[in-house]
Design a protein around this nucleic acid. Sequence first.
DNA 1: GCCGTGGCGATCAGTCACTG
DNA 2: CAGTGACTGATCGCCACGGC
Length: 228
Amino acid sequence: MKRYGSFCPIAKASEILSERWTFLIVRELMLGAFHFNDIRRGVPRMSPALLAKRLRTLQDCEIVSTTPISGGRGFEYRLTQAGEDLRPIIELAGHWGQRWARSKLPPGELDPGELMWYIRRHFGKIGLPARRIVMQIDFTDVRRMKRWWVLLEDGEADLCLDDPGFDIDIYLTTDLLSLTQVYIGDLSFARAVSKGCIELDGPRDLLRGMPVWFARSRFADDNPIWVD
DNA sequence: GCCGTGGCGATCAGTCACTG
DNA sequence: CAGTGACTGATCGCCACGGC
């Protein structure tokens, strides 16, 4: 960790938090990723070696605590009180980023795996039917990770890259950019459908509710810029 | 004195293979 | 699955130098 050689609390916080990837690791822990590979899925461009190193640093700084996984290798990672106290800071950083550092979504920042992992965590509870819903999502413009299945049940979402074997309720076909725009809040779900960026197939009553419960970033409503 | 540039060594990050 | 280690390329920090 690089030191600023200052007693200033902002400098001390920056020494820990401004290291590359650290903010994103804390974000993953905040969102409920407690195992090494869960955290990895949220930061897919980070190498496992570096993730292990950053987790050790966070542990040394008493932001993260570890408990050995019973009957297995590795640890369960949890935020300590110091880590939990970062929650409003991370939230504020997200709101700030959405307003002032918003991505123009160049191809290099689009990744189906990362998007689907984010989407998995952000399905709305309101309007979502109580029964299990199986959705098949097809990307028209990617080679790898082209087809996904999302299982929605009891307010939880599971992702599969292999056919889970259930009857499909909703077929959703789209391109990577459009779904990313919908998720990040640059394009409304209804507008994406009316423009033909998202094609849907399934029972009409189920599709009608989708603009309400389909996953969107928690920052999607900040300073919206609608794309037409 | 200030500023920009270039060279060089140290450090960091990413990739890949590997382990238990 | 949950890491570790070796290797390599990229980046950073420091210093010297030259132009103004």
